[in-house]
Design a protein around this nucleic acid. Structure first.
Lengths: 206, 206
DNA sequence: ACCTGAACACCGTTCAAGT
DNA sequence: ACCTGAACACCGTTCAAGT
């Protein structure tokens, strides 16, 4: 016989999102501690106080978990894109983007996350597409900012804005990788180098 | 009783090198077919016609095998560094380097090898150091070529030669990654972009 | 000295059973 | 509806035994 208490209830609609957050939080803690490959699902489960079976209800695979973390980290960094004005703010804005980019990956894990996500993307077309989509937004924003600066007479790249933006993003990732692999330059060094490059590419010829 | 035939013989001193080559060859074939992570040691052994026990006599781990392949691939690409003259040959030489770099990784495996090696290096300090050593040579050679070009009046980067060289290598790796992850541009496209960037960084101001 | 291949160890993932 | 945790599957690596 059904009592009020035994009546079927609707599931808490916020549960999935909460669980995902709980798992990502735990995973981030573990990755920071031991790196992506050395942490086991079991460890993430222990940290999240959840069973493997439950975890796999919310993420399809271990790779999905890293993907989610890496995409969030990039999103954080790319918030700096919103503040990208044209004209004189351009170089400073790009330097801030670089700074945010490096910071985000330093914070979320050691830099290993950066290369792990690329390795993962190389064999997961869905992840590759997700990264590409973010990249396109970034390149588009930077190119637009360059065009605004050009219109204001504050930048004269010989490269088309789109190509310049592509080169800047490629270099940004290259610098980030160097930083991750061999701690190239302390905290501000990568950002300083990136800034110098941006200046060289974008500043007006005399 | 010892007969001549049963007397201990000196081992073939060339055997280790031959075995390593045989294993690397087999591994390259497998990686090209299926990518690094999907190929198992067992498959490499089958391709090399050798047992797991024998394989582990010549390589300490699966990661060591990838490392050896990646370092060879880089060495191939960097042969272009030797041909890096100063003055007007500079830009063309850099374009050739980029071309060789992309080619080498296209050939050895899909581009996944590029990101796999970075991911591996992020947790293997020995590999990271080996890559860094190669990188330092490359940066040094490029910087020297820039200085020669400057002395000849053919290049006037506002950046110090060393910084310009670092930026070029970072961008080269960034372009290579884009290429690997989302096939950015066909065969010549990455090299073309890199060339345009080098020109922008290095060419004299008017 | 060099090799074989069965056994081991270690995870990522699944699934039958619980509430 | 959501969860548990034991079992499974798959590989990288080792090692006792062979030649």
């Amino acid at each position: 016989m059904l009592t009020v208490d035994s009546m079927p209830r609707h599931a808490d609609p916020a549960l999935p999102e909460r669980r995902r957050g709980q798992i990502l939080e735990a995973a981030r803690a573990c990755f920071r501690e031991r790196g992506f490959r050395q942490t086991t699902i079991e460890e993430i489960c222990a940290e999240a106080r959840i069973s493997p079976g439950a975890l796999y209800r919310y993420f399809g695979s271990k790779a999905d978990i890293v993907a989610a973390i890496a995409i969030e980290a990039r999103a954080d960094a790319e918030a700096a894109l919103e503040r990208l004005g044209g004209a004189e703010g351009l170089i400073e804005g790009l330097a801030a983007l670089a700074h945010a980019f490096f910071e985000a990956f330093d914070r979320e894990a050691d830099g290993a996350l950066l290369s792990d996500i690329w390795a993962e993307a190389a064999r997961d077309p869905l992840l590759a597409a997700a990264l590409q989509a973010r990249d396109r937004v970034a390149v588009g924003r930077i190119a637009a900012a360059i065009e605004r600066a050009q219109a204001a007479g504050a930048a004269y790249p010989a490269l088309p804005p789109e190509d310049a933006a592509q080169a800047l993003m490629a270099a940004l990732e290259g610098f980030a990788l160097r930083r991750a692999l061999w701690g190239d330059g302390g905290s501000g060094e990568g950002a300083r180098r990136f800034r110098a490059l941006a200046l060289q590419i974008l500043k007006p010829k005399r």
